[in-house]
Structure formats: C-alpha cells, structure tokens
Amino acid sequence: MNALNITKGTSSKSAYNLRSGHADLNERHTLAVLVANEPGVLARVIGLFSGRGYNIESLTVAEVDHQGHTSRITIVTSGTPQIIEQIKAQLGRIIPVYDVHDLTVEGPSVERELSLFKVSGKGEKRVEALRLADVFRANVVDSTLDSFTFEVVGSPEKIDAFAELVRPLGLSEMARTGVAALSRG
C-alpha cells in the first residue's frame, strides 16, 4: 500500500486561486442596498469591496426615508456568479444593512443615470451638437457663446452613446452620477 500517494506537480492551481481565469465569466449586477443612515455606513460598504477585492463600477447613495433614517446605496458591480453571491452575503452581514436586493436577478428593473456634458465649439459643430442633443432628448442647462452644457438622463448605455457622438464635436468635460435603479411594478 502506498500510504503517501504523492503525485508531483499535478496542477498549477493553488489553494488560494479562488478567482482564477478558469472560473465562470464575469457578470454585471446592480445591487440596491438599504442601510441605516448613520455615520460610517458608506465606509463599511466601500471597505468591504476594497478589503475583499470586489469591483465597483458605480455607486450612488442618498437618504430615501428621513423618518426611518434609511439610505439607499445602488452599486453596480461585476464578478463571477460565486463572487456576486459572496458580495450579497457579505453586504448582508454588515450590521446597519437592512436589506440587499440584486435587481439584475429579481425580475425586471429600470436603471437611470444623470450626466452633464460640456461641449465647446463654434459653427457647424455647435449646430450638430444641438441636433444630437435633440435626438437624445438632452436638456441644455447652460450655454455661452462658445459652449453648451447638456443634461442627459437615461440608461448608462445611452449616456455612453451620447459621449461617443459628442466627443469629436468638442466634448471638454463630463460628469456622471452613477446608476440609480428600481425594480419594476
């Protein structure tokens, strides 16, 4: 009987290779986290993501119930299905977290983001920027003789598309709020 049964170098996988390339493909998930609106709660959430090496693609936070001292944090993250489940479980054990919803899997949801674009230019480019703004139902929230500031509200993809189109027209600055999301119905 070979009691030791040692086979050498059978695998390059290590005990710690929890997030190796062999794992399933990354998925993008939008999480709604309802928390007690108390000092440090955002730091706890962000610290969890940085401490355990999870991704944050966007994050928004604001109080949604003043009486109940409740804030809503909307996080867009990505990872393998196993990591996404870990993120939800880890968020759930933060004491001031009341509830965690994975809007990506809990039925249909709507996602909206607000963005501001400053486009500087003159002549035909300026006119083209205005036409595009019309197509995207963007509002002009500020204008000078050589620039417009547009407000675009919509899905992150719509905002990406608008950014691509106005970039050659003189996009000089942009700001995005990150995604706010609600389940439908």
Binding site: E85, G92, R93
Partner: peptide, 23 residues
C-alpha cells in the same frame, strides 16, 4: 488544494453566517 478537496462527496454545511456558505 481546492480542486482536489474531497472530490466525490455530497457536502452539507451548517453555519449561522450566510457568507460562510459557498464562499
């Protein structure tokens, strides 16, 4: 080594911490 950990078994896990399960 994780990929060689008890390869043939059905595994049950009793834990009070949800984040410990399937971690």
């Amino acid at each position: 080594r994780l990929d060689a950990f008890s390869p043939g078994s059905t595994k049950a896990h009793i834990d009070i911490d949800a984040s410990s399960i399937n971690k």
